[in-house]
Design a protein around this nucleic acid. Structure first.
Ligand SMILES: [Zn+2]
Length: 309
DNA sequence: ACTGCCGGGCT
DNA sequence: AGCCCGGCAGT
């Protein structure tokens, strides 16, 4: 699978704007099921509700700390809308059922960024309600806010697409990207797969570990399947990105005041899908019947230890 | 359909 | 830690 991740951050309160809304098909089944598992409890009623079984939910709003995963800072948007200005879309989070235009390849989840809270919900209103009731301590039934709430959640967009169109958006002529994706030097770190993540926060302190500067362009980049181009391809780079791309854009310190921090990883540069070795493994050698002859790894569905590639 | 095994859950 | 399995990607 291919993936691209780009990060950016800003102190801008409102990062999410409607046009950014990626292609989201429909409540999907699995990816988020996994994400959710463990954090929700089935309620007797049929509606979506997650119980408040969290251990520590501070009543005093404090900025969420998400120091642990950088992915929360990843920022992206769909290429088509980069041109839009981000700074003023105050209506962003309310009730727009994510536009579902693209195929069934995208999944969007909303993750609570509050401390010690891992809630992931499928709708923005859901996560807002969650935050409102659990973290902000409001109990109002009214779905509408007074407009002054501090929601901290991130919209997580998982791209399931085969990314075949990825190349098209990588080509110089592509109309979709205002900001041509720079090539990131062969990364040495592992990278979460194909997800695009966007930050949300209504005030000025979204967790940030990069530069704090003006919100700006959102970029969206995709790659193609991870197995074809192994050689790096040169693509024109927009100035803003060039800075970070050159100097190992990751991490604090490099945020030398660029408008944005984008880090892109072209997955096929780093993890060429594992080719699946030739060697026959216990399972095949002994067969299901003689399962007890398998090496333990095979029995546990782990990488075989007996017949190594 | 089968195989290999990652990721994650349970004990 | 050991053990199991869902699910996915490659064949
Ligand atoms: Zn084995």
């Amino acid at each position: 699978m291919a993936a691209t991740v780009l990060t950016s951050l800003s102190t801008s309160p409102l990062v999410l704007h409607p046009s950014c809304a990626p292609s989201v098909p429909e409540p999907t089944t699995k990816t988020w099921k996994e994400a959710l598992s463990g954090s929700y409890s089935s309620s007797t009623s049929g509606n979506w509700s997650w119980d408040a079984s969290d251990q520590s939910v501070p009543s005093t709003p404090s900025p969420p700390l998400s120091n642990d995963h950088n992915k929360n800072f990843l920022l992206s948007s769909h290429g088509d809308d980069v041109s839009e200005d981000v700074t003023e879309s105050a209506h962003f989070m309310f009730e727009d059922p994510i536009p579902r235009k693209r195929k069934n390849s995208m999944k969007v989840m909303f993750k609570c960024l509050w401390k010690n809270c891992e809630k992931v919900l499928s709708t923005s209103s859901g996560i807002q309600r969650h935050i409102r009731t659990l973290h902000l301590g409001r109990n109002s039934d009214s779905d509408y806010s007074d407009g002054e709430e501090d929601f901290y959640y991130s919209e997580i967009e998982v791209n399931m697409d085969s990314l075949t169109e990825g190349l098209s958006s990588l080509t110089p002529t592509s109309p979709t990207t205002a900001c041509p994706p720079p090539i990131f030097p062969p990364p040495l770190t592992e990278v979460p797969h194909s997800e695009h993540i966007r930050m949300n926060g209504s005030q000025s302190h979204p967790p940030t570990l990069l530069s704090q500067s003006a919100p700006s362009t959102l970029c969206h980049i995709r790659t193609d399947h991870a197995y074809q181009a192994t050689a790096p391809v040169s693509i024109p780079v927009c100035p803003e990105l060039a800075g970070i791309a050159n100097g190992n854009g990751i991490g604090p310190g490099t945020g030398s005041g660029n408008g944005i921090m984008c880090v892109l990883m072209l997955s096929h540069l780093l993890l060429p899908r594992k080719p699946r070795g030739e060697a026959k493994k216990c399972r095949k050698v002994y067969g299901m019947e003689k399962r007890d002859m398998w090496c333990t790894a095979c029995r546990w569905k782990k990488a075989c230890q007996r017949f190594i590639d």
